[in-house]
């Protein structure tokens, strides 16, 4: 019989590295959640505003791209709080490193600002425009943006998809963390961002047609999310010792309870059920369902962020 490792001792006790890696806390979970939510908001608002309407859309849709920018700024604030060397934050913008997802993300974030701001102007209804033009001399910009409406909404859509995928890839490319070493994270975070975006819009007063569409898109996104989580676990099941380690945290290990209760049941299963009932019985939507979806999105980031950090190669034989 081959001898097995009985005990390992180390003299290394570096803070945040030992005994288990914990370099990223709530700041990054909040940032990843808000990044996904903003991606969802940008994609959904671009899609819903694609065709010019005779009547101005509901207020929240008119302001969706600008609200997305406000939320993105909050997210970047959380990201900033996480930096250990805050004075050097400008260094993200003195280089572009094509191999680094973090570098892509930093640039995507700043590129989204002008695009979403211009889309935000286009999305405003007549009342809001008149009010804005009284306060700020934006007449020329608005006229120019109106002429490029389709291109701007297209760019917003692309920016949203890029942002949504990036938040997943950021973790997914850090292959030294075994649980993040799955290609599913990009699509999973994008889909979760879409459902969060829809849920956020559903918290506000919407036109009946938009509300109906968003509920259905939200349900679709939740189903796809559940399928992707299944695919992730299936992938782990077929990935040998590393996969076993990655699956363990969610299937019996430290993160099992929070993953299944907060992410799967609270964030996906219950909202799906409630939305199904609401559609079937033609009930008015209540704020509970979208709130659960949003909390589930935050929980997904928080759980995978924490569980993944704690899945290093040192845990393999």
């Amino acid at each position: 019989m081959l001898p097995t490792l009985l005990e390992q001792t180390t003299t290394r006790v570096n803070a945040e590295i030992d005994p288990a890696l914990h370099i990223w806390g709530w700041e990054i979970a909040v940032y990843l959640f808000l990044g996904g939510l903003v991606a969802g908001l940008l994609i959904l608002s671009a899609l819903l505003l694609w065709r010019p309407r005779e009547q101005p859309p509901s207020r929240i849709l008119q302001f969706a791209p600008l609200v997305a920018l406000a939320l993105l700024s909050l997210g970047m604030g959380a990201l900033f709080l996480d930096l250990a060397y805050k004075l050097h934050v400008f260094r993200f913008y003195t280089a572009f490193r094509p191999t680094s997802p973090m570098s892509w993300g930093a640039w995507i974030l700043v590129l989204i600002y002008p695009v979403a701001a211009l889309s935000g102007l286009v999305a405003l209804g007549p009342d809001a425009r008149a009010w804005l033009l009284k306060k700020l001399p934006l007449g020329k910009v608005l006229a120019w943006a109106e002429g490029k409406r389709q291109a701007l909404l297209g760019a917003t859509l692309a920016g949203g998809v890029g942002l949504g995928i990036y938040t997943g890839l950021l973790l997914g490319t850090l292959t030294a963390r075994i649980q993040w070493n799955t290609a599913v994270l990009g699509p999973l975070f994008l889909t979760s961002g879409l459902s969060s975006g829809a849920a956020f819009l559903l918290l506000f007063k919407l036109d009946e047609v938009d509300r109906h569409r968003l509920v259905r898109w939200d349900m679709l996104a939740l189903v796809v999310e559940a399928v992707l989580i299944g695919a992730m676990l299936l992938g782990f099941a077929n990935a040998g010792a590393a996969g076993q380690l990655a699956a363990e945290a969610l299937l019996g290990g430290a993160w099992t309870a929070s993953f299944w209760s907060l992410v799967v049941v609270m964030g996906i299963a219950v909202p799906l059920l409630l939305e199904g009932i609401e559609i079937k019985k033609h009930l008015p939507l209540v704020a509970v369902t979208p709130t659960l979806v949003l909390l589930g999105g935050l929980a997904l980031r928080a759980v995978l962020l924490a569980a993944g950090q704690d899945s290093g190669f040192r845990m393999l034989p």
């Binding site: 570096n14 803070a15 945040e16 590295i17 030992d18 890696l21 370099i23 990223w24 996480d82 930096l83 250990a84 060397y85 805050k86 050097h88 934050v89 260094r91 993200f92 003195t94 280089a95 680094s100 997802p101 973090m102 850090l174 292959t175 030294a176 963390r177 950090q309 290093g312 190669f313 040192r314």
Partner: peptide, 19 residues
């Protein structure tokens, strides 16, 4: 040049880095 973003720490399979 370092911002303290910690991406390198997460990427290291040997956990050889620290802040």
């Amino acid at each position: 040049l370092c911002t303290g973003c910690k991406a390198c720490i997460a990427s290291c399979p040997y956990d050889a880095r620290y802040v």
